[in-house]
Design a protein around this nucleic acid. Structure first.
Length: 868
DNA sequence: GCGGACTGCTTACCT
DNA sequence: ACAGGTAAGCAGTCCGCG
């Protein structure tokens, strides 16, 4: 037994040796290898890069040999710094250098002292000991992670291809065709050199191909004695009983730990997956380690917090020496020694991804919910705890999890891998970092890169705040920092032929057109003070182009004028259209957040006046547009932030309005969509529009909300389908009759208790843990607490399904309720308020409909139809 | 001691 | 951990009521 283990450990050791030989030997010369990760090696005290070489589909390491060192900046001279206690005697201190940098807040060049250190931890960080940034009075650029600083200084862009020649890194030979460059540049004839430079820089990143990333999905199962308790990865006290490894290259393995009393079972297992049984857990883990040392990219779902740390601690527990485990457990991520680890949970958890890239297709961030929404298949449902499954049941379950994890990166032509690639290129963050950070981190990193490229001093957060101050407007919502967008009161009723016009990418356009940036708003020049921003006390610089204005403006223009159009261009191959769609979608995610970050305290360039100016100009634009529309004799029936809804405008009127916008506002106002007709109640952000093809666009209405019970959602959808059939005002009368019947039927079925319990359930998300609700106890929390008592483990983000029942406390989890206790009174009120949002707009009265139902059931029976 | 008016909390949505 | 604006339902509180 011992010999066996020893042999296997030797195999592992050999694998390690192979890697360490090729990483130093072969990375001397590489051709077209993608830079996918970067880190800091504590032993060698240098930054290292991981390249993915697409032919061999392997990782190559490259350790810095340029002598780059960590540093921060000070406004004191070296002589002054020498006087400070503990600075030059600090063990990490290396030397001083004088540098000259442009200070964007002061609009002048300044001499600064670069304090160069032997290692990044001396400047700052989590670790104990005195940090240089705390020793000196004011430190600049002292909060940037060293390996990022390294990338910015060297101008290296992640997910781009490079050649390594005799140990030197050079940009790879691929080039965008002159033809394409010309075509795109011709769209920007009127722009100046500075703007065009940005455009061309982006084209270079976007046109560069994406390699096929060889990757493997990993999923483990742990046998837990208690069904409702999730095993703890730190103690790792229970054995790992199954591991699935599913590769993008056709590789597939399921490893099972042999245990007493477990039956074989008779599930049919997926083809192409090899099942291996292990007597010993250490041998099984060894097999996993081989895979982790083979694949350049490892995918998990929640592997940062569960699978990988569990494997690590379990391996340690059963006797593996730490340094032999190819996993590195960190504070906020679990990474790999050889390849890179992408935790898809973190990626899909990102709100911006959820909303803008996947248009809210999934609302619950679980492997099951996401894969159901995006792939059409979910996890395998199991009724028993893991410990009671047969081998084949367990294998099937585990294989399915790893398979859908891999498939989440494969569907729609590897959409997710390509999104990660593009976002990594834009944000200048490695694949590992870009998938773990939010939009504010991406934009921060991009801005840092641009500052270093221009030799600009990166401002300190407190300096921006001190110079630019806080806000001047008052928010409508209590507790918010400044006033946001305007929402126009809708004109209630039905409006035929509605054209919806909107400003393409409103806030980014404002940032570009008004030259907004943290350094240009409230700039230091007297001459600019009359260049005021409407309805604010702010002015904006005329002398220099703002960095944000250029960066965001160029991205906006490329999305609106090129990539969005080309993603729908039927003259292009579907593969190219698809790629352009990935780009425009990535841009959308970044652009949508570009204004908000300036109003977010956590953002490194937090500058409330920039956010406030953007919102203020937005209000000014929509108000002016409404005025102008009215001057042109068009009725504006609704508007929100960047859009106006025009009732039955002529083509000429639309032309005039968009021309006016272009010429006097300098803004592109386009027809976004047209409705055959639209239905408004008195409520803002609540309406329904019918497109020319009869499909129905529903916004904000209760009937569409995800927490609304199914029975009511279905009845509501049925009603909107009827509305979709209406072509002319005349058709309305028939539709109204149909709608009355739908509402009536829903009401009577409810009353007679004909709906199933699950269809009556409200589904509400837990915003926090059950104990987190202190001020009030909402209904879903009451239900959640009942579930907790029955042994369920309720976590934030879980969706609680509950029904309204008679008696106290009025709600019950659906799992624990029975049909007899349903409080039909409550449901009837809910039906009423849901339909009312549409009924009063189309001239129907809920009570009248219901009143007729009563009469009808008493006097005429089921076949009666009312002719009003 | 009860009920209506009110405020505040919470979720889900829109742009 | 991008922003603010809106709707809705319920929980909890206050106040009048001789």
């Amino acid at each position: 037994m011992h010999t066996e283990k020893y042999d296997n450990l030797n195999t592992l050791k050999k694998t390690f040796e192979t890697i360490s030989t090729f990483d130093t030997a072969i990375a001397k010369n590489l051709f077209g290898a993608y830079l996918i990760s970067v880190g800091y090696n504590k032993e060698k005290k240098v930054a290292y890069l991981k390249f993915y070489e697409p032919k061999s589909k392997r990782i190559f390491f490259w350790y810095d040999e340029t002598g780059h060192n960590p540093y921060c900046l000070s406004d004191l001279k070296p002589d002054e710094l020498k006087q400070i206690d503990n600075l030059i005697t600090h063990p990490g201190f290396d030397h001083f250098e004088i540098v000259e940098k442009y200070d964007p807040l002061k609009d002048k060049f300044s001499k600064l002292t670069k304090i160069v250190t032997k290692d990044p931890a001396s400047i700052g960080g989590q670790g104990g000991g005195r940090h240089i940034r705390d020793i000196i009075p004011k430190a600049w650029e002292a909060n940037i992670r060293y390996y990022e600083s390294y990338m910015y200084d060297r101008g290296l862009i992640p997910c781009m291809p490079y050649d390594v020649k005799e140990g030197k890194i050079v940009k790879s030979g691929y080039r965008v065709s002159d033809e394409l460059l010309k075509e795109i540049n011709s769209l920007f004839k009127d722009e100046d050199r500075e703007f065009l430079d940005y455009i061309n820089q982006w084209i270079d990143l976007f046109e560069c191909p994406v390699p096929d990333f060889r990757r493997v999905a990993v999923d483990i199962e742990v046998s837990s004695p208690v069904r409702t308790r999730v095993p703890n990865p730190e103690t790792a006290s229970e054995p790992i009983v199954a591991i699935s490894l599913i590769g993008s290259d056709g590789f597939g393995k399921n490893l099972l730990l042999k245990r007493d009393g477990v039956k074989e079972g008779n599930e049919k297992l997926p083809e192409g997956v090899k099942v291996e049984y292990y007597d010993r857990e250490d041998e099984m883990l060894l097999e996993v380690f081989k895979t982790l040392l083979d694949y350049p990219i490892v995918l998990t779902f929640n592997g940062d917090d569960f699978d990988l740390p569990y494997i690590y601690h379990r391996a340690e527990k059963i006797g593996f020496p730490r340094e032999k485990i190819p996993i590195e457990v960190g504070r906020d991520a679990t990474l790999l020694k050889y390849g890179i680890h992408i935790d898809l949970y973190k990626f899909f958890f990102n709100r911006s991804m959820q909303i803008y890239a996947f248009s809210r297709k999934y609302t619950e961030v679980t492997l099951d919910a996401i894969s159901r929404a995006l792939l059409g298949t979910g996890k395998i449902k199991i009724e028993k705890p893991i410990s009671e499954l047969t081998y084949s049941e367990l294998a099937n379950y585990c294989i399915q999890d790893a398979t859908i994890t891999l498939d989440l990166t494969r569907f729609s032509d590897n959409l997710v891998m390509r999104l990660i690639t593009v976002l990594s290129r834009i944000s200048r963050l490695s694949m590992e970092d870009v998938t773990r950070q939010g939009v504010s981190g991406w934009i921060k990193s991009l801005m840092y890169f641009e500052h270093r490229k221009r030799n600009w001093l990166i401002p300190r957060l407190e300096d921006i705040l001190e110079i630019k101050g806080v806000t001047s407007t008052k928010a409508i919502i209590e507790g918010k920092k400044y006033r946001g967008a305007t929402v126009v009161k809708p004109s209630p009723g039905v409006h035929f032929n509605v054209a919806v016009l909107d400003f393409a990418s409103l806030y980014p356009s404002i940032i570009k057109r008004w030259n907004l940036s943290y350094e240009t708003v409230l700039c230091s020049h007297k001459e600019c003070k009359d260049n005021v921003i409407p309805e604010t006390p702010y002015w904006v610089c005329r002398k220099r182009k703002g960095i944000t204005s250029l960066v965001i403006g160029s991205l906006r223009d490329l999305r609106v004028k090129w990539y969005k159009l080309k993603s729908k261009d039927k003259n292009l191959s579907s593969a190219l259209r698809n790629w352009y769609d990935v780009i425009q979608c990535s841009l959308k995610v970044i652009l949508n957040a570009s204004y908000g970050v300036f109003g977010a305290e956590i953002f490194a360039f937090y500058c409330p006046p920039v956010a406030e100016s953007t919102a203020s100009i937005g209000r000014y634009l929509i108000n002016k547009t409404i005025e102008e529309a009215q001057k042109l004799g068009i009725e504006v029936v609704y508007g929100d932030t960047d859009s106006v809804f025009l009732e039955n405008p002529s083509a000429k009127q639309i032309d005039e309005l968009t021309k006016w916008s272009r010429e006097s506002l300098g803004m592109e106002l386009d027809v976004d969509k047209t409705y055959r007709y639209s239905v408004f109640s008195t409520r803002k952000k609540n309406y329904l529009g019918v497109y020319p093809d009869g499909s129905v666009d529903i916004k904000g209405l209760t009937g569409k909300k995800k927490n609304t019970p199914n029975f009511l959602q279905s009845a509501f959808i049925e009603m909107t389908k009827t509305l979709g059939e209406v072509k002319t005002p005349k058709d309305f009368e028939d539709a109204k009759e149909k709608i009355k019947r739908i509402v009536k039927e829903c009401y009577t079925k409810m009353k007679r208790g004909e709906y199933k319990l699950e269809d009556l359930a409200f589904n509400v998300t837990m915003g926090k843990s059950t104990e987190g609700y202190i001020k009030t106890t909402p209904q879903h929390v009451k239900a959640a607490r009942q579930l907790s008592e029955t042994g369920y483990d309720i976590k934030p983000g879980d969706i609680i399904s509950f029904v309204k029942v008679i008696g106290s406390p009025g709600v019950k989890p659906t799992q624990l309720a029975s049909s007899q206790e349903i409080d039909s009174e409550k449901y009837m009120n809910y039906i009423e308020s849901t339909f009312e949002q549409v009924l009063d707009a189309i001239g129907l009265d809920f009570n009248e409909i219901i009143g007729l139902t009563r009469l009808e059931s008493f006097l005429w029976g089921e076949n009666y139809t009312n002719k009003q």
